[in-house]
Structure formats: C-alpha cells, structure tokens
Simulated assay, not measured.
Amino acid sequence: MKKLSVFGALLLSCTLALSACSGQSKNSQSASASASTSASSSASSSADQPKVDRSGQGNFPEVTGGFGEKPEIKAGSGSVGDAILVKTLHQGNGATVGLDDIVQVNYAGALFKDGTVFDSSFADGRTPIAFSLNQVIKGWKYGLAEAHVGDRVELVIPSQWGYGAKGAGSSIPANADLVFVVDILGTVNPSDTSALTKATPTGNELPAGITVTGDLGSEPKITFGESAPTEDAKIVIAEGKGEKVTIGSTVVYQAVGATFGADSKPQSSWSEAGGQVTTVAQGNQLVDFTAGSRVLLVGAGNTAQGAASQAVVVDIIAVIPAK
C-alpha cells in the first residue's frame, strides 16, 4: 500500500516520529506482511487481461469448511489451464466488488499440486486484512472482481497470473499454480467521494496560524501562519454521516500533510488514485470519527529536540466495521 510518512505518526498518536503510515496492531501487521508474500504484488510481467471462468465448473480442488471457518484445501490434480477459475462456495448478498476496490478479507492460500498451505489469515491471532485490488496479483484482482460481500470464493490461479517463474520467497516455488479460499468481508470504491461531499461543516475554530481551504470531496490545502502551533489538536472540520471508526475497523481515506517551515513541501495522497487504507489499532487518532468526515490533526513541535510542528487533513472516504 502507499505510505505517506509525514502524516503517519499523527494518525497513530500525534507524535512526531514521522513513521510510516500504519494503524495496524501487531497481529494485523503480521497478516499484512504475510499477505505481501501471498497476495500483494504481481509477479506477472504480462500486461494482458486474463480470462476468468466464473462458471464454477473447472478443475477445483476439494474445499471443506463454511464461511468464517478455517478452510481445508485438498491437493489438486491434472492441469489448471490458462484461465483464472472462480467458484462461489457460499453466496453473499452484499455489495459487488469492483475491479479497483479496496477489499477486506480472510483468506487461505495453498499450492495446487499438493494442498500445502503457505499462508492463512484464519491462523490463531490473525485478523482480516484490507488492501487495494490494484496492489495484488492479477489472479486476485480479476478473480475477486464481481464477487459480493458475504461470498466465500475459491480461486484457482495459474502461475502466470500469480508469481510466475520467480515464485515468492521459500513457500511459493517457480511456476506454481495456486488455490485460494477467500471470505469477502467488505469492499469500498475509493473513487467514490460522495460521503465526503455530504458532510456537514462544523464551523469549529482551527488552531491559530493554521488555515485549511478546499471543497469537501476534493483535495484540501493547509497553510501555516508566521507562528507554529503550540498544542496538539484534533478538530472536525466537517462531520460525515457514515459508520463510526472503532478499534479493528478498516478506514479508507485521503490525506494531506504539511510540516511547519519555509522549506517544507506538503505531501498528499490525492495525487494517487486508490486512497489509503489502514486497520485501526489502539492509539489511532481517527477513532470515533465517522465516514465522510474531514478532520484536522495537529502535532505541536518541540524546538528543543529539533522537531517541527505538523498538520494533517484526513478525509474519511469509508469505514468497514471491525469483524
């Protein structure tokens, strides 16, 4: 996922550590790190769009276990062909997953040839993970698109739409065909900013020396005055009407961050399509705000330690509730 360090620490605790943006707990960090092996960056060099067979009639290994349960994946046999195979094992009735969506899922991945599980978010201590379908292997991106929230799907992914001749680490060998069982828990279209435009401006006073301009639903601009802020602050500029952020929920957002000083250049996620995503842990400053809200986070600097004041404007596009 994209990281914007200038505001990452403010999202967590309004400290000035300038750490990478991450609202995840230890367990969810572990899940995301593991997912980066099994489902976070495409190893396929082909720019072609793969064929997807959603008939459920292809060469699928046997899978047992219901939605929400740890699946058991048997070894496959024979050839998987060239198409991504999709079978719906449990039909949900939620929103349809879009090709560029951010999804929240539980999943297990295994090697087709022998059923060896190389990764699973169903493992003890793990939590669901969230990521953009633009940041995953093509087998995931095209296989999960058109599914629904509440579905449990089985994906059979030929190696060229997985990790190809390079494989991935020590657990996924070269040219390995893969099997995934995925429970779809939530989906968000990060380009849909309608919740932001429907927010109600609060009229709350901003800290002295900070000005925020820009229409709701579009990129804001932060301007500092002559003096740096002297106190930390959390201020709702506009209040959304959506889901409340809680510990464990997934937040999709855009943000603009700036550091006080003549030479400072603002950083913004608005210039990159797809938004930011974080799973909220204890200490995250977005807890209790609502989807659609525009929030100003301010971290006062410590000149004695050489730390400058920072300000971040966070626009909360959507919240997927904790599972």
Rank of each mutant, 00 (worst) to 15 (best):
T202A: 12
G8H: 02
A9R: 05
T278K: 09
D232C: 07
E239Y: 06
S46R: 00
A238I: 08
S13P: 00
H148S: 11
A145P: 00
T187M: 02
K166A: 13
P190H: 04
G203V: 03
D82P: 02
T303F: 04
S79V: 10
I316A: 09
I84N: 01
P207L: 07
G217L: 12
V312Y: 07
F7V: 08
T116E: 14
G143L: 05
G65M: 00
K244S: 15
P50F: 01
S30M: 12
L11R: 09
K51M: 10
L296N: 11
A322N: 08
A147F: 00
G58H: 02
N189E: 07
Q285I: 03
V314Y: 11
A39M: 12
L16Q: 06
T246F: 05
V52Y: 01
A33E: 12
I84E: 01
D119S: 14
G217E: 13
A304F: 11
F118D: 10
S45C: 05
A228L: 05
S271E: 13
Y253F: 15
D53I: 06
T15Y: 10
D119R: 13
G242A: 09
L144Q: 06
D177V: 00
D288T: 13
L10W: 08
G65H: 01
G167K: 05
D315E: 08
T96Q: 12
P50W: 01
D263K: 12
V105R: 06
L4W: 14
F260Y: 15
I84T: 01
S227Q: 15
I84W: 00
A318K: 13
V149S: 01
A83Q: 06
S46H: 01
N284K: 01
A20L: 03
L85I: 04
A168T: 00
Q276T: 05
A304P: 00
N106I: 00
